[in-house]
Amino acid sequence: MKFILLTFLVALLVIVINPFLPYWAIMILIAILAALVGIKGAGAFFAGGFGMGLAWLGQSIYVSSISGSSLPEKMGELMGLGSDMALFAFTGILGFLLGAFSALSGSLFRKLFKRKPDNIYGRS
């Protein structure tokens, strides 16, 4: 549940806030979000990663489809990637990595303040 929640919140964060703030500010916000949601390591990593990665991929697909521009192809050629598909993939992967590591950092940060014996309740 928390995984889906964090993925959704991260994606929302990117879509709503990223237009106004640079990527590194988004990274900090994702870390805070992951800490607040309180999700463990791998879950945070993938939720943050998918949230930002899918948001960036989606945004790049959205921008290029509403504009109908050939710029992605031109950029792909210019960067020696051959096609625009690779650029979409790169954007998604970069978003994934930035989101994933940010969320993991946030999750581990929260863990620092967690009390040891709280697993007696049998939940994380």
């Binding site: 990223n18 945004q59 790049s60 959205y62 921008v63 290029s64 710029l71 992605p72 790169f90 954007t91």
Partner: peptide
């Protein structure tokens, strides 16, 4: 590559 600020 940032779709909100980059070349996109």
């Amino acid at each position: 590559l940032d779709p909100n600020h980059g070349f996109w």
